[in-house]
Design a protein around this nucleic acid. Sequence first.
DNA 1: AATTATTGTTTGCACATACAAATAAGGATT
DNA 2: AATCCTTATTTGTATGTGCAAACAATAATT
Lengths: 152, 152
Amino acid sequence: MTKETIDTADVNVDNRYSACLLFSANALARVITAIGDEEFGRLGLAYSHAYLLREVVDQPGVTPTQLSNTLFLTPSTITRLIEKLEQKQLVERRAEGKNTKVFPTIKGEQLRDEVVAAWLRTWDRYSNAIGEEQVKTLTQQIFKAAQSLGAV
Amino acid sequence: MTKETIDTADVNVDNRYSACLLFSANALARVITAIGDEEFGRLGLAYSHAYLLREVVDQPGVTPTQLSNTLFLTPSTITRLIEKLEQKQLVERRAEGKNTKVFPTIKGEQLRDEVVAAWLRTWDRYSNAIGEEQVKTLTQQIFKAAQSLGAV
DNA sequence: AATTATTGTTTGCACATACAAATAAGGATT
DNA sequence: AATCCTTATTTGTATGTGCAAACAATAATT
């Protein structure tokens, strides 16, 4: 377990990058993803796989395009994620005309509760680190900003 | 130019993911990175390359470890970024004992002003989308959160 | 002085993501 | 009906990032 670390102990908190949204947003995403992958990783899933799986379990027959819109990921990325989940036999695809419908397998359905549980654990970890209230407001602001910027 | 798009027009703003920090943070990072890469892309650089280059120009002889701490990226990632910049002949490495020191080339130094200019352009675009004041506060909050969560 | 531990850097591998182009199916227009 | 246009999905390729392990150099301990 020789996980690479970043030693921030001696970093000036007010370095120039703290004033840069591009930098900060990516830093936050990486830190948070690390935590998320740690929790979802116990189920053998990356966080985005877990999200997609849950979406498929809750909406059997959902199409890649719909998933793309819901998860804010491009169609090609969705295809790749589905491929991975198919390999793990958690979902399966059925072609219908020009659409592809994605269904959960039994194995996939059975994993749902664990996914939700992992989800709650990540929430707890964020809350412990920065406070439950702060998690809420920050999430809201971030989501709104992402929407505004995405529309540009 | 058949860039993949994500159609968010018909997405419910209050879907369950808007309440999830992991999801929102990554969505924001992707949107923002797309804008940043567009601006820095004119210089033939990804945004992280631009950041690293600026760091090297401003602190000639900086080591990968220092860069790792400043840029919140793991040492291996730093190595990869340096390799890329070396290929473009914008920086060069000199081994000194167990340390590696990174210096800008003349070509690299000449690019500095353009990097700063691109930086300002990204700032303008964020401000136009979500307001200058909001960019400031959001950036601050995000950076703080990243620090708190990173320390866990 | 010799061995062990620590620190700094790089490398092999893997993964999430995206762009651009390809393919395929439906719809629209003539 | 035949042609063009649009929409849905997949595929080839590339990039940024990280983990784990390898390597190299210095420091610490015996």
